[in-house]
Design a protein around this nucleic acid. Structure first.
Lengths: 195, 195
DNA sequence: CGCCGATATTCTAGTACTAGAATAGTCTGG
DNA sequence: CCAGACTATTCTAGTACTAGAATATCGGCG
């Protein structure tokens, strides 16, 4: 990780702080409230860790706690001038940069021959079902977002688009596998390395 | 990582070894030769590390080096019976399991307001260009694969499908952003946390 | 022989991340 | 004024992964 660049997780938090200064716990709540767990890999346990890193890099700074805290005192962070600059630059780069696609599905597909054909069919069927379910869930979530800026819909739309495309591909592939002449090869257990 | 499950990287290597026993260096070559860097995250420096892990878990075992090696002696690994079982089970799971989609693009999109509108447009344009280029490259790679089993094409087709869908979405989104009434909000620098 | 280039593996020293437990303060009810 | 619930942060002890340098071995060539 070149030190000049932000990881996706760092950019997410920094962006949230540019929007409005917040404290760690609150970040976790916002991430949940906006359904961001769908497009973000941030777990609760990393938030403070990431915050510390951003702070050490001088991209965010602690702000004097305003008003009375309920419960333990909070550390409220806001972006520094440098933080704002880096956030804008990184967001721009994230939008432009293309990354390889490697979902586990591809790895599974690459290992088709070791899966008994009927089990492969079943697994693909389960995937299709999960996909349909998820598409419905995201579509619902998109319309249920109450107080988020409009452009957030674009994110849901993107996810929906990718999922829908996968569903199409899956359907076509399942049909192809089911076709008579096209039985895929299947490796039955053969020789093995000495234990 | 629950110890019963393989990471995508581990599954990839294990699958290659189930196909045919190989040594570390050879794995690297095969991954390259098949264009697997597109759908795999395995760097050269992790191969021996992963191999050691698989070996320690009893999924692969060293096989007596056959014939004469050129250069330093090789350690050739093949799958154990357990390894074959786990490979099949994991491949099946990988095919069925749906994972959240979170490419950096989404994070960038979530931070749209901090990007000056003209730069956002430019970044999206660069993405579109990169996408077109990549689609062409993968299409070419798919047809250029010489000695790989047929089902490998399915993998390229999947990648192509996702990329094409993204391209469509991108085009639509760019048009929408360019439309007159739809100027996105843009946060200009405001107050900042104390340095 | 002694060195080079190719092949192949191992080692060193990190970075990034994570789960979950521990801690700390503040508020409420009894 | 103390027990417990709630809010919030920090600490501990790991796992997974990576880059790149170091090492080992063989064959060939001058």
């Amino acid at each position: 990780m070149p030190s000049g660049d932000l990881t996706p997780a760092e950019l997410t938090l920094l962006g949230l702080l540019v929007e409005k200064p917040r404290h760690g716990y609150e970040l976790d709540e916002v991430i949940d409230a906006r359904g961001m767990r769908e497009w973000t890999e941030i777990g609760f346990s990393s938030i403070y860790y990431l915050l510390a890193r951003l702070r050490d890099r001088g991209l965010i700074a602690e702000i004097e706690p305003t008003g009375t805290a309920r419960g333990r005192a909070r550390r409220v962070y806001g972006p520094t001038a440098e933080g704002r600059r880096v956030c804008a630059r990184s967001a721009e780069a994230a939008v432009a940069e293309l990354r390889p696609v490697f979902p586990p599905l591809l790895i599974g597909l690459a290992n088709q021959p070791v899966i008994p054909p009927d089990r492969l069919q079943a697994a693909l069927a389960r995937r299709a079902a999960a996909l349909a379910e998820r598409i419905a869930a995201i579509a619902a979530a998109r319309d249920a977002q109450p107080d988020v800026p409009d452009f957030v819909h674009a994110i849901f739309d993107y996810a929906l688009n990718q999922l829908a495309a996968e569903h199409q591909w899956l359907t076509a592939y399942r049909t192809k596998l089911a076709a008579p002449g096209t039985a895929p090869p299947h490796h039955s257990p053969a020789q093995e390395g000495r234990a």
